[in-house]
Amino acid sequence: MKIVPNRIIIILAVFFLSANTVFADAGPPPPSTPPPPPGLPLDGGILLLLVLSLCYGIYKINKVKNIKKASN
């Protein structure tokens, strides 16, 4: 059986190149994503805002009525 030098080189190259993948490290895992920001309550002050705007509206309406009564 005649051994061809090209086959030996190819066999050694495949052996040594495949050995690199055995010892290869995958590396550290990717960093985790930051948690999403906490949800902001949309209904926290709506009732207070509604009451204040209603009071302000009544105040402005009475002010306009008083000005009209005073000018008559």
Score class of each variant (00 low, 15 high):
Lys2Met: 08
Ile3Asp: 02
Ile3Thr: 04
Ile3Lys: 04
Ile3Asn: 02
Val4Tyr: 08
Val4Ile: 14
Val4Gly: 08
Arg7Tyr: 13
Arg7Glu: 14
Ile10Ala: 07
Leu12Trp: 02
Ala13Lys: 00
Ala13Asp: 01
Ala13Ile: 05
Ala13Thr: 11
Phe15Ala: 12
Phe15Leu: 09
Phe16Ile: 12
Phe16Asp: 00
Phe16Arg: 03
Leu17Arg: 04
Leu17Val: 14
Ala19His: 04
Asn20Val: 12
Asn20Asp: 15
Val22Lys: 10
Val22Ser: 05
Phe23Cys: 01
Asp25Cys: 01
Ala26Phe: 03
Ala26Val: 08
Gly27Lys: 00
Gly27Glu: 07
Pro30Gln: 15
Pro30Leu: 15
Pro31Thr: 08
Pro31Glu: 09
Pro31His: 06
Ser32Pro: 11
Ser32Gly: 07
Pro34Met: 04
Pro34Lys: 04
Pro34Thr: 02
Pro34Arg: 02
Pro34Gly: 02
Pro36Phe: 00
Pro37Glu: 04
Pro38Asp: 11
Pro38Met: 02
Gly39Glu: 08
Gly39His: 01
Leu40Asp: 09
Leu40Val: 11
Leu40Pro: 15
Pro41Arg: 02
Leu42Ile: 11
Leu42Glu: 15
Leu42Cys: 05
Asp43Trp: 07
Asp43Gly: 08
Gly45Arg: 13
Gly45Ile: 12
Ile46Glu: 15
Leu47His: 11
Leu47Asp: 11
Leu48Pro: 08
Leu48Ser: 13
Leu49Tyr: 11
Leu49Cys: 03
Leu50Gly: 13
Leu50Pro: 04
Val51Asp: 10
Val51Ala: 14
Val51Phe: 15
Leu52Trp: 08
Leu52Phe: 14
Leu54Pro: 11
Leu54Cys: 15
Ile58Trp: 13
Ile58Gln: 11
Tyr59Ser: 12
Lys60Tyr: 09
Lys60Ala: 08
Lys60Gly: 01
Ile61Asp: 06
Ile61Gln: 09
Asn62Glu: 05
Asn62Val: 07
Val64Gly: 04
Lys65Asn: 10
Lys68Pro: 00
Lys68Ala: 03
Ala70Cys: 04
Ser71Met: 06
Asn72Ser: 12
Asn72Tyr: 10
Asn72Trp: 10
